[in-house]
């Protein structure tokens, strides 16, 4: 069975895609101890079972809100086989901001580029193949409300589970220099070794409270 999580900004069509994938077979509950809805379901692609967990809609992964914390902890600790990052094509610039952070976390990503119809009417012409090459991840164009791209998404998820991709994401030299230095320290002092060291380095530099706390519990940073 393949374990997947759906991540994305609020209002990208996550619910529509979750329903299209899982149909009536879904379980609603709450995330442990909090009142945020947790939805899980199962779908099937050519005999392979795919378990789908719907993460709360979020803009960022800094864990400043409960939603962000749930999403981040789930990806880091439960380590789903594939994270489907749903991107609203009509709002692609801001949506890719979360994609960048998911890449920093070194999650095995598939991008569902939803609302292609809206993007078109907004005057956005997106070359999906090029986009996929540029970021080094599979990209599935979708119009979820018309059920377009759902089968392709399943297929891509199954494929991604079998051949994980974690392309590096590089920023400007200045930023990379700071990250590199911190990363050395993270590796040397074995700060949160269960997480990707580059991700930990970035979060420490950002002054992320929860990561600082987690790290501080074991070592003094």
């Amino acid at each position: 069975m393949i374990r997947t999580a759906l991540a994305g900004n609020p209002n990208v069509g996550k619910s529509v895609i979750f329903n299209a994938l899982t149909g009536a077979k879904q379980k609603i509950g709450n995330w442990p101890g909090v009142t945020v809805e947790k939805k899980e379901g199962i779908c099937n692609y050519k005999g392979t079972e795919i378990q789908v967990t719907d993460l709360p809609g979020i803009y960022s992964l800094t864990a400043s809100s409960i939603d962000e914390k749930i999403a981040r902890d789930y990806i880091l600790d439960e380590k789903p086989d594939v994270v489907v990052d749903i991107v609203d094509a009509s709002n692609i610039e801001r949506n890719l901001y979360l994609t960048m952070q998911l890449m920093e976390m070194e999650a095995n990503l598939v991008i569902a580029l939803n609302k292609m119809d809206l993007a078109e009417s907004k005057g956005y012409r997106i070359d999906v193949r090029k986009l996929s090459n540029e970021i080094g991840l599979p990209v599935v164009p979708m119009v979820a409300i018309r059920n377009e791209g759902v089968e392709e998404l399943k297929q891509t998820v199954v494929h991604a589970a079998n051949s994980p991709k974690k392309p590096a994401i590089r920023y400007s030299d200045e930023v990379e220099e700071a990250i590199g230095e911190m990363e050395k320290k993270v590796t040397k002092e074995r700060i949160l070794p269960e997480y990707p060291s580059r991700f930990v380095a970035i979060k420490l530099l950002e002054g992320d409270k929860t990561i600082l706390e987690k790290a501080g519990k074991r070592t003094e940073v």
Binding site: Y59, S60, T62, S64, E93, R94, Y97, E206, G207
Partner: peptide, 12 residues
């Protein structure tokens, strides 16, 4: 404050 600022930055 850092939290609000981070949020604003994240939103573009």
């Amino acid at each position: 404050n850092p939290e609000v600022r981070k949020k604003l930055l994240d939103m573009g």
